[in-house]
């Protein structure tokens, strides 16, 4: 199992454990982490699973793809260098302990 910490906009931390291969979006939704919507189910169609990867983890999650970049154009909250669509970050052992921050709003 891989540990992920979601830091809500108000600072509340939720720590969950998810199986390898799960996306950061899926892991949040199936553990009832508020602040990730994932309306389209991970098809990269909605930009409602926006997250900011913690600075310490940036190198490990890698850069966002062009497609993600384009969808983030419509994100409800500010897009920064660390913005990702969490449906596109798949959990593997190298991401055990991952920390992501959640935006103020997704819709």
């Amino acid at each position: 199992m891989i540990k992920v910490t979601y830091v809500a906009h108000d600072g509340t931390e939720t720590v969950i454990e998810a199986e390898e291969g799960t996306s950061v979006m899926q892991a949040a939704v199936s553990n009832d982490v508020e602040g990730i919507v994932g309306e389209c189910g991970g098809s990269m169609m909605c930009a409602t699973c926006h997250c900011y990867v913690d600075e310490a983890w940036e190198a490990k999650t890698g850069a966002r793809s062009d497609d993600e970049d384009e969808m983030l154009e419509g994100a409800a909250s500010e897009v920064t260098e660390r913005s990702r669509l969490s449906c596109q970050i798949k959990l593997d052992p190298s991401l055990d302990g991952l920390v992501v921050h959640l935006p103020e709003e997704q819709l």
């Binding site: 990269m44 930009a47 497609d67 384009e70 969808m71 154009e73 419509g74």
Partner: peptide, 11 residues
């Protein structure tokens, strides 16, 4: 295959 324009159009 043009998410950029799609998202701009939505705005």
């Amino acid at each position: 295959n043009n998410a950029r324009v799609h998202m701009k159009a939505r705005k």
